[in-house]
């Protein structure tokens, strides 16, 4: 990656951050998607309890509970010496609405992940992006036992705008996830050609 630090994670001072949001319902594969393209590899976190210090003896047993982590995923992809892509996976639950708004703010665009077994759960993310006026790409994460639909069936059911790309993907695959990003940026490019640059 383009980094001028022996440490490997520092960026050049002249870098421009670009922000994308990855949205969709619970367990649709957002974390996996972010992890697949991020140069910061997510690993499993077994406990966060220790934030308050380890409770030995008397408070034993507490370790088994509370293993929640931060509610948003976070990944980074250094594209060039002066462009770095930040991917934020937003939580799916409505109670995180305020955080989603916050994460969407300033984003270039979004990826909405869909599980065809439960497409309705992705509607909320689509609505939010549409209301925010953010361009997005719809990415169908194909699970082995997912029912197969034609693109036309999906577009109709999702009431998708004709200009919004719909792509199939396997979020575990870097190339596949990358292709989703390529579709999104291509879509942004196509829009930019039509919008005034003011």
């Amino acid at each position: 990656m383009h980094s001028n630090s022996s440490d490997g994670h520092y960026l050049d001072a002249g870098v421009t951050p670009v922000k994308l949001v990855v949205m969709g319902p619970f367990a649709v594969g957002k974390t996996t998607f972010v992890g697949a393209v991020s140069e910061i590899k997510p690993a499993s976190t077994e406990e966060r309890l220790t934030q308050a210090g380890e409770l030995v003896d008397d408070l034993r047993g507490l370790e088994d509970k509370d293993t929640t982590t931060v509610a948003h995923d976070f990944g980074r992809l250094t594209l060039t010496e002066d462009i770095v892509l930040y991917l934020f996976g937003t939580p799916g639950q409505p109670r995180f609405a305020a955080m989603i708004e916050d994460l969407m703010y300033g984003a270039l665009g979004g990826v909405v992940l869909v599980d065809t077994r439960r497409v309705a759960e992705s509607w909320d993310a689509m609505e939010r992006l549409e209301e925010a006026g953010l361009a997005y790409v719809l990415a169908v994460n194909e699970f082995p036992n997912s029912p197969k639909y034609t693109e036309a069936e999906l577009r109709t059911a999702l009431d998708l705008d004709p200009w919004t790309p719909l792509v199939m993907c396997d979020v575990r695959k870097r190339e596949s996830a990358k292709a989703v990003l390529i579709a999104l940026v291509s879509h942004l490019l196509s829009r930019s050609s039509l919008e005034p640059a003011s």
């Binding site: 870098v15 951050p17 490019l189």
Partner: peptide
């Protein structure tokens, strides 16, 4: 330095470089 899509969203050069 804030993410600056508001100004650069329609910056074709930037988008092309990203692509």
């Amino acid at each position: 330095r804030n993410p600056a899509p508001a100004a650069q969203k329609h910056d074709r050069a930037l988008l092309e470089r990203i692509l």
